[in-house]
Amino acid sequence: MSETVIIDGPAPLTGTFFAADTPRALAVLNGATGVPHRFYRHFAAWLAETQGISCLTYDYRDFGASATTHSSKVTANMLDWGLHDTQAARDWAALRAGGLPLWLMGHSLGGLMLARQSGTDAISRVITICTGPVHTTDHPWPFQATVRALWFAVGPAAYTTLGYVPGRLSGLGSDIPGPVFRQWKRWCTTRGYPAQDPNIPSAPKAAFACPVNFISMSDDTSVPPHAVARMTELYPGCQCEHRALTPQAFGLHKIGHIDVFRRKNKAVWPALIA
């Protein structure tokens, strides 16, 4: 069973709550940059219907179902999405957990800043998928050429002209607001960016007492496994484990960065929560 929900926070967020009949946990799934929350509906439904894990998915402020204005007028940046909106969603879920273990799951951007949330001692499990402090030089060629064109040519030109980066240019299929693009570019073109961006708060040591699992895909060109392995820098002192999965181990030809959550790749889903 699923229902549309409104999450109160610094900005209203629209999401979908998938309720398990007999839940054993409640998970908050924070999405990747430019990926609407409806994209995760099959995975969230699988969690609720087959794993007994109720799941909240949602869109970041002024994006997707949470949009209140045109992308060219959005003032929110990536930190608003990756830290403040993930906190609001987590707080919403915590009020409705009813004593159930609370899981945090993050896809790409959705897992970067979780250690910088407040009240992390109440979390029972953290799972990030294809999340890592990636730098431009981490991408393999020829994909790196595409990324460089986005950061240094196509993206800045679109932002300067339109105030946002259209989906057909971002490669994500969704428009990216200008302030989000600018901060995203700065993070991905600066080595050790958390320490270099004064707007990012420091992560407390051992923010989580629970297990923290970092999952990477061997064929992910956007955030390759060696970039995911750096996640310990963002989660200092935590009980971390990095697991690199290969498509072939699940009878699949390819998975990549986004498609891990597509229904055609559901063979890998049990490994994400193993």
Rank of each mutant, 00 (worst) to 15 (best):
G163Y: 00
F181R: 01
D138T: 12
T33G: 08
G82W: 01
A274L: 00
F208G: 14
W103C: 00
G251A: 02
A122C: 13
I123M: 09
S71R: 12
A158C: 15
P225F: 12
A97R: 10
G192D: 06
P142S: 11
F214K: 03
A203M: 12
P156R: 15
S218G: 06
S66M: 14
G52A: 01
W92C: 02
H135I: 03
R116V: 06
Y164N: 00
R182T: 14
V228T: 14
A32E: 04
L95S: 14
P140A: 04
D197A: 09
L114F: 11
F152H: 14
L29Q: 09
D91G: 02
L252N: 13
L109R: 12
V228G: 11
H70L: 13
L272D: 07
S66T: 07
T232Y: 08
F208V: 12
A153W: 06
R90T: 05
T246H: 12
P198Y: 09
Y193A: 07
T131V: 15
V134E: 05
P247K: 08
L100V: 00
D91Q: 11
A207G: 10
V260N: 03
V134M: 10
P12C: 04
N199I: 00
H139D: 05
H257A: 08
T189K: 10
D259F: 02
P270S: 02
Y193N: 05
V268F: 03
A11Q: 09
F250C: 08
S118L: 06
Y40E: 03
T146S: 09
P140V: 14
H70Y: 14
E49R: 03
V260Q: 01
F17N: 09
